[in-house]
Design a protein around this nucleic acid. Structure first.
Lengths: 152, 152
DNA sequence: CAAGGATAGGTGTATGTACACGTATTTAAG
DNA sequence: CTTAAATACGTGTACATACACCTATCCTTG
């Protein structure tokens, strides 16, 4: 769907303004497609992200701060997302022996299982819906990083 | 900041996967920059969107459904966002005379004022930080719409 | 070692999202 | 006209974000 149809407006001040709206809308679209696919696994988008981040270091543990540093949305409240993963027995929480301020998180076997089946589902979804070729995807990456250039 | 630094990872399966993450991250970045700029006006990103949508039709009224149709995030809970705008006396709520199921929303003069000053602030911000030229912005718009091609 | 600051993580609150559901009203069908 | 379906909106709940604040622990420096 064209952006104009999605938000029922074609009054864009300039291509740059349209690009920011397009970017926000595309992200919302991606998130909602992802969330729908994750729902049967009783996983939210953010819980899935935390599991993936943990998998990246597995079987090593990670502390809450390390997880937070790898999240897309920098103000995610990792302790509370971990609460929910603990409740579902997909991760375990323990106090670090080295630094007692740190809470270390470990994936359980159940956590690994749910992550693997849900990831297979997500990858199949993306293969179906993502039609950009490599050149286009690289170009998009370049433009998005240029957009964020003035960050900081 | 490069995506790799932002999420402390460079393990992307392919350029398409990286592009989806890049898009999600860019949207988060845009939202947080916007929200920071709106904070002094006691406006959230979503409240600002509703005011802008109302301005688009002003001085006509709009019903809740029409507002919802123009929102980026299609599952926004418009009645509750309107609650907060009513509390700040920036909009007024009334039952439609034509269709009593409808609630019609009108901008107040206060609402127009806060929208104008905040919009000036947002536009100045975007002029500072958005460095894409027209060609690049158009290219980005094209790629994002191609990404969403399989929608529906 | 003691004191002050930095750091890690948990918690409270306001706001928003996603989704299910209830109520009032309108529209359509018989 | 009467009844059933559709529509518009509000509300309840679980989850997440944004941000301020608290406590425990560690580190630095005198």
């Amino acid at each position: 769907m064209k952006l104009e149809d999605a938000i029922q407006s074609n009054k864009f001040k300039n291509p740059q303004q349209k690009a920011t709206l397009n970017c926000l809308y595309t992200a919302w679209w991606l998130k909602s497609v992802l969330s729908k696919e994750l729902k049967p696994f009783d996983l939210t988008h953010e819980q899935y992200n935390v599991l993936r981040i943990l998998k990246g270091k597995h079987p090593e543990q990670m502390c809450v701060k390390d997880i937070a540093g790898r999240m897309m949305e920098k103000s995610s409240n990792v302790p509370r997302i971990v609460d929910r993963l603990v409740a579902k027995k997909w991760v375990k929480r323990a106090t670090s022996a080295i630094d007692k301020r740190e809470t270390v998180i470990t994936l359980t076997q159940n956590g690994i299982n749910v992550l693997e089946t849900s990831t297979a589902s997500i990858e199949a979804l993306f293969n179906r819906i993502l039609t950009l070729n490599d050149t286009e995807a690289n170009q998009l990456n370049g433009l998005l990083e240029k957009l964020r250039e003035t960050e900081g």
